[in-house]
Design a binder for these strands. Structure first.
Lengths: 342, 342
DNA sequence: TTGTAGGCGTTATCAA
DNA sequence: TTGATAACGCCTACAA
């Protein structure tokens, strides 16, 4: 059984003191080049790796970040988080961090999870997803000076913290313009109940594009419902039954869009032609040839890590954030993936 | 700024020595009940949590498990891993473990990741996914006595290690029987190139069900291709062009099944009726009303954690596994989700 | 430029 | 039943 390789093993092997090895690791400029090389050789041949546990005890930094993995709700939108997580892990690795997973049924459980993770593993920071109005989580973390970034804007509270988000309004506007360009004049919006930051944002893009093209706003074409395939189908049947039905739909999610397509295809007696766009470019959209707004999730994840590590490096103490530098915000532009229904 | 609560703080508060607090935590039976209560009160009021880092230095156990998050390959099958990971995290939490994520482009990178994770974070164990023939990863881990479980059977090598898997043959057989029950007599199989353990397994279920029903095997109905929508469509067009085309298809994945459906719908001149079953019950299947074989992923994840923690508890030393108890294997039965195409 | 001493929070060992 | 002591591997002073 091979002996555990510590900093002492390396020191012995390279004929230097333990401290010199530590210097090579943390402040290489202090060590003479020749010595440095010798130590690096020893490290390589012995396969030494610093023990994060031991380092953490001295420095208080664990090089661990946390992210939540949600219970695949809808199933369709689930893959969004999946791709985001993958990007997060990849970028974090490059920055010398690891991502720890946690689950939480509700906000209270999530805060309990923070407490546990912080206490037991001394996490360096958090990446929160799915912000909503009056998010209690950010308040809790900010209060304790825990570094964090959110993927999603803080929708109301003026709390200032770093965040990354995708411009949903721009995405919806692109989709709407695409439909207008294809000759549509009556374009409905199917979104989520007012009050959902994300939903309202996307709706505003639809509105803006209509205005831009001098198309009138009609209240009957502005619909809200809970997310889901069946809900999307129900709303669509409603819309198609109007005296002057829309010829195209901008949907706030792929789930709604799929429902819309199904409803249109089976609308009595022989189905109805209806152009539909979705949101999130999920695998389902890809599979059925649905035009959808694609979020740059890999990029978003990378920017989250960037922001977080910047915070971490400027905040070695772990104490409250220095008031000096303002937190950064990043708004990414989505892109429209145009497809032909298969 | 609140002082950091350590075992010493608790000891002072409860008027005992540090060691007694440690005993309350790890060997409560050694401590008199009255003292125990006092210490527990102190722990609660102070909000003390043991520092995993410090504990790890003494015990060598990190309470950390690792799992790989794959780059959403196909997009469609990606969500399978997603759901598995969620189950893993949830069950691990209940067992007092946390899940650390890592990525790896290929097998070599994956082994490098093991090395890093083991060296730096001193991980307690690994959950591997997607085993294939002659998996080098399991050999590497076994050689070093690192505890691990695979989700997926070791397909050839007689290496004995704990694993959890879903009975793909049983799933394919169920799908085939369902089609037979619906009156189909010419049922094709669309799977992956021979040599893929998972693919061969699923194919064998189709074969068995045919035999069971005294249906003849026809070579021309036994197809293999790379996974993907377009590939599935191509194979299906091929099949439909046969002199005696099949009326139903059992597919080894939802991707292939989707391709098959698209090909059938657009088969000249007016499309062709074709019953299709998929595999994995992905969100896409749900969305388009595809009958598919569903894997009990949450259960699989839970069994993985069970097996792994059992290993961990019996293997405190971290050394080679005790030869005494044979590793456990778990084969779960999938279920068929029957749907009507929407 | 390199080496020595001490301590981070915990648990194992041993003594009281 | 409880308490003192040492050690896990590392890093930050400080001294040489």
């Amino acid at each position: 059984m091979p002996e555990k390789v510590t900093i002492a093993t390396v020191a012995r092997h390279a004929q230097v003191s333990r401290q010199t090895v530590s210097n090579v690791l943390n402040s290489p400029h202090l060590v003479r080049e020749e010595t440095r090389e010798r130590v690096r050789d020893a490290i390589a041949t012995l396969g030494y790796r610093v023990s994060q546990a031991a380092r953490q005890m001295r420095t208080g930094r664990s090089k661990l970040l946390a992210a939540r993995i949600e219970p695949t709700r809808d199933g369709i939108n689930g893959s969004v988080l999946d791709r985001f997580l993958h990007g997060l892990t990849e970028t974090a690795e490059a920055a010398g961090y690891r991502v720890l997973l946690y689950t939480a049924g509700d906000r209270a459980a999530e805060i309990a999870a923070y407490d546990d993770l912080l206490g037991a593993y001394d996490l360096d920071g958090f990446v929160l997803t799915g912000t909503d109005h009056g998010d209690v989580r950010t308040a809790w973390l900010a209060e304790r000076g825990v570094p964090f970034v959110t993927f999603g804007r803080p929708w109301d509270s003026p709390e200032r913290h770093p965040w990354v988000d995708v411009d949903g309004a721009a995405g919806a506007a692109q989709a709407t313009r695409h439909l207008i360009g294809a000759g549509h004049r009556r374009i409905a919006f199917v979104g989520w109940p007012a009050g959902s930051g994300v939903g309202d944002d996307r709706r505003s893009g639809w509105l803006a594009a209509l205005r831009e093209a001098d198309l009138p706003y009609a209240d009957e074409l502005d619909r809200r419902t809970v997310d889901g395939i069946t809900e999307g189908a129900a709303v669509t049947r409603d819309l198609l039954a109007l005296a002057e039905p829309p010829t195209a739909l901008v949907c706030a999610s792929d789930s709604l869009a799929i429902g819309a397509l199904q409803a249109a295809r089976t609308y009595p007696p022989n189905g109805r032609d209806l152009a539909v766009t979705g949101f999130d470019d999920t695998p389902v959209a890809q599979a059925i040839g649905l035009t959808s707004v694609s979020q740059p999730l890999g990029q978003a994840a990378a920017r989250c890590i960037e922001l977080l590590t910047a915070l971490l490096d400027g905040d070695v103490s772990g104490g409250p954030r220095a008031a000096g530098q303002p937190p950064s915000q990043v708004l990414l532009r989505p892109s429209l993936v145009i497809r032909q229904p298969a």
